[in-house]
């Protein structure tokens, strides 16, 4: 057992766990943050996607020992019902989920994509999202929702821009 401290959704957290234990199961079974889902355990399906220092990673293949000192964001930290992330707002507007099980991972991958590429093309979306499986077949809605999230994000940035300038 090891004591591991990391940042989880903006808050410092310390857990006692075997260092090889995947982050996925630390989140789900020790910290009871069940929004991150198990789908394959082999980094093949993307259901367990979280951000580590802003990068999308498969938490099922990320040992908790690696996470020490890093910053983890899960779907619970992406946004809240009162303050949804642009990706979540777009997902809501377009009613993307069907069964919904893969959608935490889908949104985390989409949010990471938009953070580094604010105006992705269809090809960019395909490349960034092809590691996230949806068996309900929501891909067409996901693609549309990412384009919509990009618009929402751009509008939010435009709204912030004068304030930024004002500060200068």
């Amino acid at each position: 057992m090891a004591t591991i401290t990391f940042t989880l959704n903006g808050q410092p957290r310390t857990v006692e766990a075997e260092p090889q234990m995947p982050l996925l199961w630390v989140l789900r079974d020790i910290l009871n943050l069940t929004g991150t889902k198990y789908g394959c355990g082999m980094a093949l399906c993307g259901a367990c996607t979280v951000h580590i220092d802003g990068n999308p990673v498969r938490s099922c293949r990320t040992e908790i020992g690696f996470v020490a000192g890093r910053s983890v964001t899960t779907v619970e930290g992406l946004g809240t019902p009162d303050a949804l992330h642009p990706v979540q707002r777009a997902w809501l507007e377009l009613d993307v989920p069907q069964c919904g099980y893969c959608q935490s991972g889908q949104q985390m991958s989409a949010a990471a994509l938009l953070a580094r590429n604010p105006k992705p093309t269809d090809a960019d979306i395909d490349a960034a999202m092809r590691n996230n499986i949806c068996r309900c077949g929501t891909y067409q809605s996901i693609r549309a929702a990412i384009h919509r999230a990009a618009e929402i994000q751009a509008l939010a940035m435009d709204a912030m821009a004068p304030a930024e300038e004002g500060r200068v």
Binding site: L84, L92, G100
Partner: peptide, 19 residues
């Protein structure tokens, strides 16, 4: 859909989430 908000915020409860 009335189940979308729960499903995009990670609060929808599935069998695997029972604690």
């Amino acid at each position: 859909r009335r189940d979308t908000l729960a499903k995009i915020t990670g609060t929808a409860r599935y069998g695997i989430d029972v604690r």
